[in-house]
Design a protein around this nucleic acid. Sequence first.
DNA 1: CGTTGATGCGGAATTTAATTCGGCCATTAT
DNA 2: ATAATGGCCGAATTAAATTCCGCATCAACG
Lengths: 179, 179
Amino acid sequence: MDAETDDVQRNKHPAREIDPIDRKILGVLVEDATISYAELGERVGLSPPAAHERVKRLKRSGAIRATSAIIDPRAVKKPLLAFVHIDTRGWGKTPELMAVSKYPEVEEIHTVAGDTCMLLKVRTEDTRALEGLLARLYDTPGVTSTRSYVVLSTYLERPVQPEITSEWPAPKHMATPMY
Amino acid sequence: MDAETDDVQRNKHPAREIDPIDRKILGVLVEDATISYAELGERVGLSPPAAHERVKRLKRSGAIRATSAIIDPRAVKKPLLAFVHIDTRGWGKTPELMAVSKYPEVEEIHTVAGDTCMLLKVRTEDTRALEGLLARLYDTPGVTSTRSYVVLSTYLERPVQPEITSEWPAPKHMATPMY
DNA sequence: CGTTGATGCGGAATTTAATTCGGCCATTAT
DNA sequence: ATAATGGCCGAATTAAATTCCGCATCAACG
């Protein structure tokens, strides 16, 4: 079982390497998921049915996990963005800690190495609601400390997860690391 | 000029409060942006044209900022997720710092209060590429120190920004803060 | 080499959905 | 009271998604 099968596949069908056209398609769909296949084909140089088939394959293979509307947080009254680092006893994913994922304020939960065990991305109506969330976290068995980073302003928040690039940008500085 | 006009409006048209049906629509669209208006209307209790008009309005008002395909980071060879905290001299948004937003590895840039000035969410192919990015950051004038949190595993990553709830979940613990 | 099978493509046809239109009802302002 | 507005529905029209073939390319295989 090679890396491809183990990684991307895992969840789904028979992989098949992502080619440059696929990357273009992904790039377009990240910007607008409701584009017509006619225009998508236009932009990537394919006929509408061909573009359609590519997209179907990308969905089947799991490369496209979902399509989603990007909501303005202010419109749903959750303008406050914060990152919360949590230290826990034992570093385990206990049921109590997992229950945190059911809080609607919590947008992401990751575990990271080092002192900080968990890292949350949360959105709330205001600092008062953030404090309420922190209170609930401290009530959660296993939580020993938290540190919050309240976002003052956001310069960049790309439409979605990874940035798609057709040609790989040469990381110029990588040739001369300085540490 | 009231808060609504100042906040949500700003970018766009004549606001008009988001009602429970709008919230339901947003919730559905966050889960799947390519659903047909027929089914959307079905789920929120409207006819297809009515649902269509609601969505158009939500887009015009800016509540729906965009639609996007959610890509599996492994499919585009960027399986490594990390959060990078950056301390800078002077706390200013200099052109050099803003140029960081052009790095394709960088998915989000926020400024936060406290010692840490900037907070980045980045995805790279591997730790080597992350180091390359850090090297570039250290080359950026104004950067004094960085701290990286490499994500070991992700428990939750909701399809998109804020969690949409039709009825507000009562924050039980908020009545008894403990600090 | 020639053959076979599989894959990806484009054009045309068909089915389905998006969009427009007109009229109705409720709420609000005059 | 009544006019005006906004939001909805059902029907009609337009546009797009999806299916259906036939063709070309490539690779494995005889």
